[in-house]
Design a protein around this nucleic acid. Structure first.
Lengths: 201, 201
DNA sequence: AACGTAAGTCAACGCGCATTGACATCGCTC
DNA sequence: GAGCGATGTCAATGCGCGTTGACTTACGTT
C-alpha cells in the first residue's frame, strides 16, 4: 500500500508551511474577490478556496473579514502610476480604456473598482474618503500642477469615476460606430481638462 | 392583575386596514433604507419597522426583497426634467449645479445615492442597467438626437454620474477661485459633449 | 346580523456564512 | 532525535436574516 511512496503526488498539496506566502496569497485573493463582488457578497470560504488555504487561516492572519478588507484596501491603492501618464496621450488613452474596459490596464481598473465598491459600505466609506483625498486627488493635483490644479483635479477625478461607474453598469461591449464616437467624445472631454490654463498666446 | 382591561391602550396601534397606504409606507421605507445602506446591508425587518408594518406584509406586497428593490428603483428615478434643459445653457447650468451641490434638492441626491449603491452590487447592477437604459440613457439620447446620440448619451451619462459621486464625496463647499475654475472646466467638458457632430462647415 | 375575503400578525424554519476551538503536523533548535 | 512553537486542518457552533404558512381580525356585502 505504499503507492503513495512511488507517487508522492501532493493530494491538494498540503500547503507548504510558509506564513508569509500564505498570508500574501490570502491578501491577493481577498483583493480580487472584494473588487469583483464587494464587501458583503464576498464570502470567506471562497477567498480561502481561491487562495488555496483553509478558512481558519485567513481568520488567524487578518483577524476576520473586516481585517482582511482593510488590509486589501490599503494594499490595492497605488495610484502613483497616474503620475507616469503622458500628458499628450492621456486623453485618448483613458478614453479608449473606458470604452474597451478591462483589457487595457487590468490592475488599475481593478483597484478602482475595488475603491468604488468600498464607497457603498458605511463602515468603509470614511476610510475611502481619506484615501481618495490623499492618494487620488493629491497625485492628480500634482500631476496637473499649477494654480488651478485643485479644481481641475476635482473635475478630472469626477469624470474618471463617472466613466468607471458607467463601465460597471454597461452590459455589452461597445463596437463599431458607437465605440468610435464614444472614444472621440470622451477624448474631447478629457482634453478639455488636461488643457493648460493660459491657452491664449 | 387586569390592568390591561382598564387600559385598553392600542399597543402599537394595530394599523389601519389600508393596503395602498401600507404598501406606500413600505416603499418609502425601502427607498430610504436602500439609499442609505445599499442592497445587501438593508434588512427587511428594519424596513418593516420603519414603515410600522409587519415583515410578512412587505413580502406579500412586493414578493420579496428583490421585488421591493426594483419597485424602489423605479420609484426613485425621475430624470424627466432632463428633457426640459436648454441646449445652449445646459453646460454651464449643470456645471454650476455640480459645483454648488448642497442646495440641489434633497430628494435627487437621495435617489442618486440609491442608484450608486445599486451599481456596485452584482445582483442589482443588471436591474439598474435596465432602469438606466430606459429612463436615463433613453431620454438623454432623444434629447441629444442624431445618429451619434447613443454613444454621446453614454459619455454624458457617465460624466454626469461622476460629478454626482464627486459631490457626494466632497467634504466642504467650493469657494472663490477653486469654484470658479471648477465651473469653468466642467462647463468646457459638458460643452464638448453637447456639441453637435458635424462641426465642420 | 352572518359571512367571506382581504389585510394584518405571529412564530417558526432553514440556509448561508463568519467565527472558534480542539486537533494534527511540520520544521527548527538544542 | 526529542521537544516545542508555529502552521495548517477539521468540524462544529451560533447568529443574522429572508421567507413561509397557519392563525386572527377588520371591513364591505347581502
Amino acid at each position: 500500500m505504499n503507492v503513495r511512496a512511488s507517487a508522492p503526488r501532493d493530494r491538494a498539496a498540503p500547503r507548504k508551511r510558509d506564513a508569509d506566502a500564505t498570508s500574501a496569497a490570502i491578501l491577493e485573493a481577498g483583493k480580487a474577490q472584494f473588487a469583483r463582488l464587494g464587501y458583503d457578497r464576498t464570502v470567506m470560504r471562497d477567498v480561502a478556496a481561491e487562495a488555496g488555504v483553509d478558512v481558519a487561516l485567513i481568520n488567524r492572519y487578518f483577524g476576520g473579514k473586516e481585517g482582511l478588507f482593510t488590509a486589501a484596501l490599503k494594499a490595492s491603492f497605488h495610484p502613483d502610476r497616474i503620475l507616469a501618464w503622458d500628458r499628450r496621450t492621456f486623453a485618448s488613452e483613458i478614453a479608449t480604456m473606458m470604452a474597451d474596459g478591462a483589457h487595457v490596464d487590468e490592475e488599475r481598473a481593478h483597484s478602482f473598482q475595488f475603491l468604488l465598491r468600498a464607497a457603498t459600505s458605511p463602515t468603509t466609506a470614511p476610510l475611502l474618503n481619506v484615501a481618495i483625498q490623499e492618494r487620488f486627488l493629491g497625485p492628480i493635483r500634482d500631476w496637473l500642477g499649477g494654480e488651478e490644479a485643485p479644481a481641475r483635479a476635482r473635475v478630472l477625478a469626477a469624470t474618471f469615476i463617472g466613466f468607471l461607474v458607467e463601465r460597471l453598469i454597461r452590459d455589452k461591449a461597445l463596437v463599431g460606430r458607437e465605440r468610435k464616437v464614444f472614444i472621440q467624445r470622451a477624448t474631447a472631454m478629457f482634453e478639455a481638462i488636461v488643457q493648460e490654463p493660459e491657452q491664449t498666446t
